[in-house]
Amino acid sequence: MSAAKTNGSGDSGASKATEKTEKTAKAEKISVSVVGGGAWGRALALASANAGNDVLLYTRRSGVAEDGVRVTASLADVAAHAHLILLTVPSPVVAEMARELGEHLDGRHAIVHGVRGLVPSARGDDGDLGTIASVLRAETPVRRLGALGGPALTEELHAGAPSVLVVASRYPEVIAATQRALANSAVRVYSTDDLLGLEWASALTGLLAVAVGFAKGSGAGAGLVSAFMTRGIHECARIAAAAGAEERTFLGLAGFGDLFASIGEEARPEIRLGEALARGEDLDATLATLGQRVEAVELAPLVSAFAERRRVKAPIVTTIASGILARKPADDLIRALMVEPVGGGA
């Protein structure tokens, strides 16, 4: 831990004083490590520090600083600092990061990730999709795993505005620890034991957000956008259920909650991508302009193929995969969805 340097507002003397008052006021101060210095990781680290915890943030970027959060570039420090680790790296680097981190972890650690995405299953050839938790399970000795999702927006969380998160874990202990790590006067942390459901919901709402952006960009009215979202959530819930998730998770904060948040968030890359595609702009050019990875681009065809293999009807996801991202004209796509046979469930 010696390599960790203190960042943020106070000098070491002042932070010690703060520590003392915190200790007397709240006996249950805990240690938390956050891995990933992106906007989301920094927001979580700050929320945890605001909850009065001793937070260490791992990042390879330079110049990252948050109030009351120490920063390190050593994974050994991360493991030594806390048994609870929040992981917020982009999904393509999760495996590599986990393997490296795994060198320092043991069975006592818990990892709670806030990564949106699914990965092709380890077997690779069966068209199945694996969750981030399954990657962590394969790459580290850690069993006590969890995930964060829900409607909290990075900027709002970072600004200390009232925010709502959901933590999912099959381990009650992990839920309790995450709540202690993050809940403060401005952050509420709901919980579910449907880890798989939350992971699928986080990934698939990202997909649906592209469709929502696309519908908005095509000039669809509020009624149609709403229909899109509702049918989309139900469709995604069915697909995820085929993977073993609970459908009802999609109907709560991790599904609907997350998707509703995305329409309000104009800055969300999925929405902007959908809108740009609706205007007929080029996919690669748009992605370059966004300067950000959009998970949905790679995920859509995988999810569509998964649904087909499991014989789940998925017109919206298929439209996203083979229509929107393939830049077919917006009007044609909406028309095609409108002539889909109407099922019983509304």
Binding site: L84, D106, R108, E139, P141, R144, A176
Partner: peptide, 27 residues
Amino acid sequence: ARGREVDPRTYVEPVLGRDEVVMDAGR
């Protein structure tokens, strides 16, 4: 799974709290 030695005892120590083995039915 990556061939790194791990002490089984660590799995039954609490994530938060003291270094001791605890009974936890939910876990």
